[in-house]
């Protein structure tokens, strides 16, 4: 009798597991179709000279060989690193600052400030790009108008036309657009830190900076490290804002790797070569992800 029950239970397990597989199959199929297939397809076409329609000439590792020797690709990687580093740095500073202000108990109109500070994050990148293009415009831009009205400058500054200023102009917009996300994350983390810890630190004679270094920072570190890594990965492959502001110009001054990939593929119709670049970025992102996981494990 007991043996029979065992058999029945096995059959039930089998049915349960089959039913489980059946239920996850739609999600699995979506995952394969939307994530795995494009990924593999992208890697495969990096070995082809293709326009994606009627030309699929196998070229092997030709584009990888060409890419390794391509100085302009390394230059675009360098610009990407610069854009990523300063954007994430700027976002982090602003996010930490505003999150610490917004977490204060005695801050008046806290909800209003919180809503205003989150606003930039709600705007689509295209809108932000167009808005700031207008603000930066040398002829009728608001910045030049204010600076000239205050007699700070005689001639308009060509923010987006000058190779010395354009990257900083783009980074500034990117910081403005992206810091609210980090701020919201840090704000949530800050709210989980017990007030007792601050009181204890204060009783121990800790000043504001010491409280920040020894209570706040360790408290937000798990969230901060994850958010930082996400920000780095997002910025590394960021496209929309830069494209809408400068299209990678002038003279390639803001041609980051995502713009390089887009132009090679969609402007010059060299999709194979474009995919080769994308595979490189994919590898970099994978390395960053592994690093982040390792960092999280060491935190634990």
């Amino acid at each position: 009798m007991a043996k029979d029950r065992k058999v029945i239970r096995h059959k039930g397990d089998l049915f349960q597991s089959r039913a489980g597989y059946a239920f996850i199959s739609p999600a699995f199929l979506v995952l394969v179709l939307m994530v795995v297939y494009p990924l593999i397809y992208g890697i495969v076409i990096s070995f082809f000279d293709t326009n994606l329609v009627n030309k699929f000439d196998f070229v092997g590792l030709k584009y990888y060989g060409r890419l390794i020797k391509d100085a302009s690709f390394y230059a675009s990687l360098g610009r990407t690193v610069m854009f990523t580093f300063f954007t994430v740095l700027g976002r982090t500073i602003l996010a930490v600052l505003f999150a610490n202000i917004l977490v204060m108990d005695n801050l008046p109109y806290k909800k209003v400030f919180r809503a205003i500070l989150v606003l930039p994050w709600f705007f689509p990148d295209v809108v932000v790009g167009m808005l700031w293009r207008w603000l930066y415009n040398a002829n009728y831009g608001l910045f030049n108008f204010i600076l000239r009205s205050l007699h700070i400058i005689d001639a308009p500054i060509e923010w987006l036309s000058n190779t010395d200023t354009v990257m900083w102009a783009v980074i500034l917009v990117s910081i403005w657009k992206g810091f609210p996300f980090m701020m919201v994350m840090l704000l949530a983390a800050l709210q989980t830190i017990s007030k007792d810890l601050y009181e204890a630190a204060e009783l121990d004679g800790c000043g504001v900076i010491q409280r920040f270094l020894h209570v706040t920072l360790p408290g937000i570190m798990p969230v901060l490290s994850t958010t930082l890594m996400l920000e780095i990965m997002w910025c590394f492959k960021h496209f929309t804002l830069i494209w809408n502001l400068t299209k990678g110009g002038p003279v390639d001054a803001t041609r980051v790797v995502s713009i390089d990939i887009y132009r090679t593929g969609f402007d010059y119709m060299r999709f194979g070569e474009s995919s080769t670049r994308a595979v490189f970025v994919f590898i970099i992102i994978i390395i960053l992800t592994l690093l982040q996981k390792k960092m999280k494990r060491s935190d634990v």
Binding site: R133, N137, A138, N139, A155, P156, E158, L160, S161, T246, G249, P250
Partner: peptide, 21 residues
């Protein structure tokens, strides 16, 4: 040529002509 020549695309130049600049 007006300031910002490198960032002035076709549409901006049409606007400048319309604005009598």
């Amino acid at each position: 040529v007006p300031p910002g020549a490198i960032e002035n695309s076709f549409n901006e130049n049409v606007n400048l002509m319309a604005m009598e600049q």
